[in-house]
Design a protein around this nucleic acid. Structure first.
Lengths: 137, 137
DNA sequence: TATTGATCTTGATTCAGTCCAGATTAGGGG
DNA sequence: CCCCTAATCTGGACTGAATCAAGATCAATA
């Protein structure tokens, strides 16, 4: 894995213990909430304020080091898999989230039939369904 | 337009003044928040509780009469255009929301390359970009 | 019209996320 | 190597969306 401190320095932002810990937590717990990340960071470096977590996640998101997804009916989730164009499937029953690569290939549907004059720069796709465990029940 | 009361009766749910007003408000104000809908309903029938609005919207959503979309960083929006497979484009600057028909056609990407065993029943697509007004500035 | 079960009202509550003021720390200049 | 400044972090108050709970009210059937 690439050294987190290097990634931060490369982006020209001050390197702090909190940010490194947040970045590591996102790698270790993909698709987890800000709260879960805060908990993981506390296990690692002892303590961190909720504010610092949100701040670090916001900064990392704006720098493109983590990605934020916000499914309906759930708090925001964060993951560190960036750069490829993958999407997510969420279980309607238990909320489990998994990565999927879109069958259409790269950047699906980025050109809408009628874009109403909008300039589109990203297409966000969420698949809704049921996970294997919930189907089994 | 189809009579709202008929739609409700057809679904086997009691017809109330609040529900009809909510259904009308959603038609008149597409892509608006629960709050905005409540305001519109109050203009029409005088008063309604926040709870009744949420309840009616939830019921209408479960019956497939309205659709709920929840963009990141914004409260849930509701619209009454259902049944066709259209998606939405949202302006990053001002939050304006518009409908788009996907270029790929019907139910794009519903079959993911690797679905991890999930059974997918819906693909939700949100395009992010800038609206004509914000580009002009 | 009477009955019954669903719906609506009011008010408290939860929860994610933000705001604020002050203490702390990273990183470059001396 | 040490100091300075601006950025970051802390802790707590706060907001706004949405949900929960108990009791009053109402739609639909007989």
């Amino acid at each position: 894995m690439i050294e987190p401190a290097f990634l931060l320095r490369e982006k020209g932002v001050p390197v702090t213990a909190q940010r490194i810990a947040v970045l590591n937590a996102v790698s270790e717990l993909p698709h987890s909430t800000a709260d879960a990340i805060a908990g993981r960071v506390r296990d690692t470096i002892g303590a961190i304020s909720k504010q610092a977590v949100y701040d670090a996640l916001g900064m990392l998101t704006s720098k493109g080091l983590v990605r934020r997804i916000q499914p309906a009916g759930s708090p925001a989730l964060f993951e560190n898999r960036v750069g490829d164009n993958h999407h997510h499937v969420i279980c309607r029953s238990c909320g489990k989230t998994a990565d999927v690569d879109c069958a259409v290939g790269k950047r699906p549907c980025l050109t809408a039939a009628d874009n109403s004059g909008f300039v589109i720069d990203e297409a966000e796709v969420i698949y809704w369904g049921r996970c294997p465990d919930c189907i089994a029940k």
